[in-house]
Design a binder for these strands. Structure first.
Length: 586
RNA sequence: GGACCCGUAGCUCAGUUGGAUAGAGCACCUGGCUUCGAACCAGGGGGCCGGGGGUUCGAGUCCCUCCGGGUCUACCA
């Protein structure tokens, strides 16, 4: 039996064809709206009949009956079709169809082939993490890195060529103060021991030493001017700051499994902003206001009066200038079909103005316009609801936060599995601890604030990394006991279609994987995939509890091993797409 | 003042271009290991989806309004 990857998409196509075959008026305008259904009603449901019938003042049940009658016989082999309520069409997959899908989708490569249609042939640039150089990464930098990496993997899985670009904050007025402080107070021993720590100390010293209106600030400004004019000493210092910072960042990225293709920070666009000023001025989009070069958007309720400042009154560039230049570079140099920028919600205004400006600018100059997406996320707060990151001091360093996650995970593993050797417990703790932090960030709808809670993210029940990793470990354990490699065709050859309620519930959940991928990738919202994986692991646990796998009956044993192997495949594939690493024992 | 985000069970959160009786986890109560990993599972109680109005076959979801919390609002990013 044929089983294509995305069954819902197939049903959609079949219903469109049925609309024509049934002779519906204006059949090409009929949108089936196939989506996953509540399991009580079926596997998929088509809701489009109601909207279609309503707008044409037809009886929806009558239309649904015509459509169902026009379905090709093959659809009935695949699933049971019923009409319910005012005109929903419900599709319930037959056990044989479930088995066929599971047999076909037996490797990550096969899943990838099925999923890759969505963004095939496209190039997407993802701009995430983007910390400021000369400062340590803190807890506020976590979400962009974790969500951005998951978005990259989802886009790549759905067929895109993904370019990971770390748009570092490596330019700006703060470097004048930093150079000022460095030249006076650098401690060479501290610099050798922990360079980023020493830079951060100097950064704060510079800020304190050069308040607004002070003569020290004038000196700091001269350092900045020297840097911008290419003064060898200051340029060398600035380079050192960048190198030291990148090395420190990479230690964090290594622990999170992140590797960027490019680190094109703000400094990279220094020589590219003049073209921005020129083209926006020539296009009539930019104007001088209060000495600055700005863009207004008269059609916008707010941005008709709130300017987008693209060049400061003193002639210097700002982040609007470099972000505009960045958009053009990504379009021209990378040939981007899509640009995704992952920052917190406080920058929503900026990116709305940026995107409005880019669309008008590119249209005026004939530049190729990519899809532009600002992937925002809420703040990370403590359990008291207040921001974890306070304005004055007491920021939690990301390095220490990850250390604590691993320490806490180690204590739990040691308590639960004392028989495992310490070396392996350390490795398990590393995967579970880091995975728990990543997963906690990803599993919640990114637009709301995220309450940071050690106890919740490390819990063994609920929608957490440890729960999913535990399901993975249990499945591996069964295969170890059986002496079988997961997915071995010989072990699955005799498999029959699922029969028990828990087998069927698990199989029905497995075939919904494509829908979860599509939801997550289309909306750039990884939490849809998390939710799916949690439900899958939960259905697996019920199955695991109710149906013994390693039984004597060869057909029964084969089909349960097949269910185990596919669950393992989808859990491991899904977690990999989230950037969470899996293990075999915990 | 204006704009945007959030408000769903005691707590933390899901809820797909508007779809069927609003779902999880925690906590609470009951039951299940001589059995592939009980770090688990099965079952139970718990809701004016912030308030009010509107749109329609149908609203947690869309529109208006009010309340509460957060953020941004001319040269930091």
């Amino acid at each position: 039996m044929h089983a294509s990857f995305h069954l819902a998409a197939d049903l959609d196509a079949v219903l469109r064809a049925a609309a024509s075959a049934a002779g519906l008026a204006d059949a090409s305008a009929f949108a089936p709206e196939v989506r996953t259904a509540d399991p009580r009603h079926g596997d998929f449901q088509a809701n489009g009949v109601l909207a279609y019938a309503k707008s044409r003042k037809l009886n929806p049940r009558g239309i649904a009956e015509q459509l169902v009658a026009a379905l090709p016989p093959a659809v009935r082999d695949l699933c049971e079709v019923t009409i319910a309520g005012p005109g929903f069409i419900n599709f319930t997959l037959r056990p044989a169809a479930l088995l066929a899908w599971l047999r076909t989708h037996d490797s990550e490569a096969h899943l990838r082939t099925g999923a890759a249609a969505a963004h095939a042939g496209q190039t997407w640039v993802v701009d995430y993490s983007a910390p400021n150089t000369a400062k340590q990464m803190h807890v506020g930098h976590l979400r962009s890195a974790v969500i951005g990496e998951a978005v990259c993997r989802l886009l790549a899985f759905t067929g895109a060529r993904v370019i990971r670009d770390n748009h570092l904050g490596d330019w700006g007025t703060q470097f004048g103060k930093l150079i000022y402080a460095y030249k006076r107070w650098v401690n060479p021993a501290a610099l050798a021991a922990d360079a980023i720590e020493e830079l951060e100390r100097l950064y704060k010293l510079g800020n304190e030493a050069a308040p607004d209106g002070s003569p020290e600030l004038e000196v700091a400004r001269r350092e900045l001017v020297l840097l911008q004019q290419g003064d060898p000493e200051n340029v060398a210092l600035w380079r050192k700051f960048s190198e030291v910072s990148l090395a420190a960042f990479q230690e964090i990225y290594d622990r999170l499994g992140i590797r960027f293709d490019h680190h094109l920070g703000e400094s990279f666009y220094n020589d590219k902003v003049d073209r921005v000023y020129r083209e926006l001025t020539e296009a009539g989009l930019a104007q001088v206001s209060e000495g600055a070069l700005v863009v207004f958007h008269p059609e916008h309720p707010r941005f008709k009066t709130q300017p987008f400042i693209i060049r400061k009154a003193d002639g210097a560039s700002n982040y609007a200038s470099t972000d505009l230049a960045t958009a053009l570079y990504r379009s021209e140099h990378f040939g981007a079909h899509g640009i995704v920028i992952v920052t917190d919600f406080r920058q929503a205004d900026h990116f709305e103005q940026l995107f409005l400006t880019v669309r008008k600018w590119f249209a005026a100059r004939g530049h190729r316009l990519p899809e532009l997406h600002h992937v925002t996320f809420g703040a990370v707060t403590g359990e008291d609801g207040k921001a974890l990151k306070t304005r004055s001091g007491d920021v939690i360093r990301l390095k220490l936060l990850l250390d604590e996650a691993v320490d806490r995970a180690f204590a739990i593993v040691t308590e639960k599995s004392p028989e495992i050797p310490e070396d392996e417990r350390r490795e398990i703790a590393r995967l579970v601890g880091i995975g728990a932090v990543q997963y906690a960030d990803l599993s919640q709808n990114r637009s709301s604030n995220y309450v940071f809670s050690w106890d919740k993210m490390l819990a063994l029940d609920g929608n957490t990394a440890p729960y999913l990793l535990y399901a993975v470990a249990r499945i591996h354990s069964i295969f170890r006991k059986a002496g079988v490699t997961p997915g071995d065709p010989a072990a699955e050859a005799a498999a029959t279609a699922p029969e028990t309620p828990t087998e069927i519930a698990l199989a029905r959940k497995l075939v919904k994987f494509p829908d979860a991928i599509r939801l997550a990738a289309d909306g750039l919202r990884p939490h849809y995939l998390c939710l799916y994986l949690f439900e899958l692991a939960s259905d697996y646990s019920s199955f695991n509890n109710a149906d013994k796998v390693l039984v004597d009956d060869p057909a029964l044993r084969a089909r349960r091993l097949l269910l185990c192997a596919r669950t393992l495949l989808l859990l491991e594939t899904g977690l990999r797409l989230l950037g969470v690493r899996t293990l075999q024992r915990m």
